[in-house]
Amino acid sequence: MTAYVARRLWQFFPTLLGVVLLVFCLFNWVGGDPAYMLAGKISNPEQIENIRRQLGVDQPYAIQLWIFIKQIASGDFGASWSTNERVSDIFVTRLGPSLTVLVPLLVISTLLAMAAAMLVAYVRGSLTDRAIMIGCTVGQSVSILVYILVFQYVLAYQLGWFPVQGWGAGFAENLLRYSALPIIVGVAVSLAPDIRLYRSFFLDEINQDYVRTARAKGLSEHRVMWVHVLRNAAIPIVTNVMIQVPGLLAGAFLIERFFSIPGIGREVILAVERSDFPVIKAVTVYVALATMILNLAADLLYRVLDPRVQLK
């Protein structure tokens, strides 16, 4: 087990190096010269050079890349080029709002999707199964933008159940008042694909021999489904949830923008719009690291969920 973890941790380095090279090349290839963004309406070549010197983009690419690697090693990505705010501060202050929305969203959507998937898998081929699957296919085909626009218009504006947007100073206010609608939107968006995916996991298990044996032993359907099937189907579900987390953190920008949530996703878009490379660098590295760590954690969880799994 220890050897397995050590080997996986060792594999982080080449993966991270690939990510670093990719983001560095992409930024320098398509990112544009940030000095011209920061120079204002009227600037002369001397000012442009002064800005480039201060940002360090006048250095040869090899040196800039080396600085990038040193920043990853030290965990200090410097300050935002456009706001001068420390990148570490950006993450510390934006992570809370993102998690306030994403953690409940993920928990609720996973539980609901699992329950619904188990139900439709159990009644496979029935009218209920077909109706839910058709609904899921339609739901999955609709863009998240449509969900946001419709839910915000109907639930917040027309019915007045929620504020249209906003973010307060206290955790309880943010969770119960401002996050409620974004969570509902997020759950609605993720339910359809999750139900379809989890249904296939449950179907794989329901057809296994051990299920037939359990039934032959006279176990109740309730116990067969909730204990035997669920436990085995949970393994790919855990993987799916774990893989989703880092992507959701940076990818929930539409929800954060429409509901004015000061989270990571919104910050990423701002950084891209402003060619703010320190922030882009940090986000990319952190998301890559989070993906690798959560993948490892998912593998370790397999062993907890199913002692038969051997990690080699």
Binding site: Y157, V164, F258
Partner: peptide, 11 residues
């Protein structure tokens, strides 16, 4: 309040 999206501001 910073609201980037037109729909949010309008509603």
């Amino acid at each position: 309040s910073i609201m980037e999206e037109t729909q949010s501001r309008w509603l």
